[in-house]
Design a protein around this nucleic acid. Sequence first.
DNA 1: TTGTTTTAGTAAATCGTTTTAGTAATCAAG
DNA 2: CTTGATTACTAAAACGATTTACTAAAACAA
Lengths: 331, 331
Amino acid sequence: MSLKELAAHLNLSTTTLSLVLNGSPTAGSIPQETQKRIFSAARELNYRPNYLARSLRVQRTHTLGVIVPELSDGYSAMVLNGVESILSDQGFFYMTASHLHRSDLLERLPQVLADRQVEGIIAVDTPVRFALLPMVNVSGHDEIDGVTNVILDHWKAAELGIGHLFELGHRRIAVIKGQDFSSDTEIRWQTIRDAACARAIPIDERLVEQLKGDSPSPELGYSAMKTLLSRGEKFSAVFAFNDISAIGAIRALREAGRRVPEDVSVLGFDDIYAAAYHNPALTTVKQPLFEMGKLAAETLLDRLTATNQPAPAVLTVEPQLIVRGSTAACE
Amino acid sequence: MSLKELAAHLNLSTTTLSLVLNGSPTAGSIPQETQKRIFSAARELNYRPNYLARSLRVQRTHTLGVIVPELSDGYSAMVLNGVESILSDQGFFYMTASHLHRSDLLERLPQVLADRQVEGIIAVDTPVRFALLPMVNVSGHDEIDGVTNVILDHWKAAELGIGHLFELGHRRIAVIKGQDFSSDTEIRWQTIRDAACARAIPIDERLVEQLKGDSPSPELGYSAMKTLLSRGEKFSAVFAFNDISAIGAIRALREAGRRVPEDVSVLGFDDIYAAAYHNPALTTVKQPLFEMGKLAAETLLDRLTATNQPAPAVLTVEPQLIVRGSTAACE
DNA sequence: TTGTTTTAGTAAATCGTTTTAGTAATCAAG
DNA sequence: CTTGATTACTAAAACGATTTACTAAAACAA
């Protein structure tokens, strides 16, 4: 049932129907009676405008592209939840694409999304080098023209985390760094190092180990902790890159006969759903992932709808320390 | 840069360009030299066909709709991963929509996706009453015309789970049922009950409790177990609806002073990433979620591309028992 | 030489909307 | 009685591709 058929059925032109159905101001001159005829015929014959045709004509698709490393890594899913909550309110849809850390996809995805006529792109934890379209990068750290970065206050996050461990009396703190491909890896590491130095407990380089591989499983944290333990260097606490790796680290510690938190305190990052229910419950630095997604979506939509809204370069959100059972005072 | 502009630039018609660029058989009569001119001009001027225009004309969007309860529940994300792995190979994209168990959205989403001209819909753990479009329902249990259900062999899953607990000597087994809105709740419960009865250890109705609420957090399993414990009825094992609720249940058990698995064995379902690294590591009945997503996508694409492929009504996948540390012999 | 086929294209219709630029008919004012 | 505005519409041109149905010239066959 196209507009043309509906028009034929009513003995009116598609023009008239379009004006009336879209509530255009020009429709002011169309008598109420005709308008009613049109509306009720549309309803009865179940007329549904073809979104492609409309989008082609008005040059707006009300569709965004979303690029994530992987859907099931918890982090991305939470951000997407926030994104979707905003978009669905505004009648926008989005197409998701995962880059799986593959450089060919990283290169190509923005282009193929643009080819699909998305109006803008939200990237999550994804390195971005240029912007074909209005873009917001969640956890982006590069300053790029036309790209708004939504980032955590990393300095504060490190202060909260290291501060907490310091207050508990920990002086030899191990760190599990993120993979190089994670946007936050570098800044997280720097801020942690600075926070430790500021307290005169510099992080021993032999107490730093990096996650290896790209599985979203605790396995990587497990391996990292095994390596750390194998070095024989002493430490009483570990600051993990995220909750997932903290969970893996705890497993490795237990296997090595170290109790958590009695022998070693473990501090996570993110506050995923499972954190509160892990055993022991994870003390963690919470990122407001849902809010970051919302903020990203709101910012991008503002830019698309408002007239020539300038893109803010950076939007910062605040972390929060959630103290649970995986950290305790150092003996 | 539109086809028209490119054509003008080459002094050729859009027809010729279209034929050549799409490798149409009709282009056989166009000399190689002209073809080369066209291809290289397209490359140099970075011509990108407008997907809307093309889709409108050929009546194919290469886009699917995906309906899930919520993105961050682990289950959906894993299925989506499988879906995406197939779609991206075939040049398809998809639009995700979450229904959040809201009946208005459940009703409306298929329609708004259809309005967006998706070619088919994949629903995940979502009740479906009719099919506007070719559709595959992952964990669907209703027989609906035009809908293929991808389901787990629930009978076998129950046999594996109950069989495992039975062999360990458990005779009084508690069950945490899923919420009514979960597609698998009813069949899961029935098959578990049957498997228990077949071993002459019928499930005591006072040992059954249902998850309440729709958060994707272990909290629901925690509450359910608290209720179960508060009844004072004895049990030596519990079969949880999924890993998330099993994790919550373990927390409640520990708080009540019951050790897992020494005092109570806990059996999960799904085998999410965290299961292996929980403490204790979760024994669980694994669903091949990634494969289910792949299968759903493959089936739907087959139907869309092959000529009049009939839709299979049901596709069954096999569960697998993963024995870890949360179950042990009954004393 | 004539007729047919092949070669190398093109004009125009089409997909289903929106939007611009009208047009005829009625009405009010001067 | 003319002019100008208002009312109630519509024709046709977009949007940017694809596709059908041609044409005109060259090559080939009889």
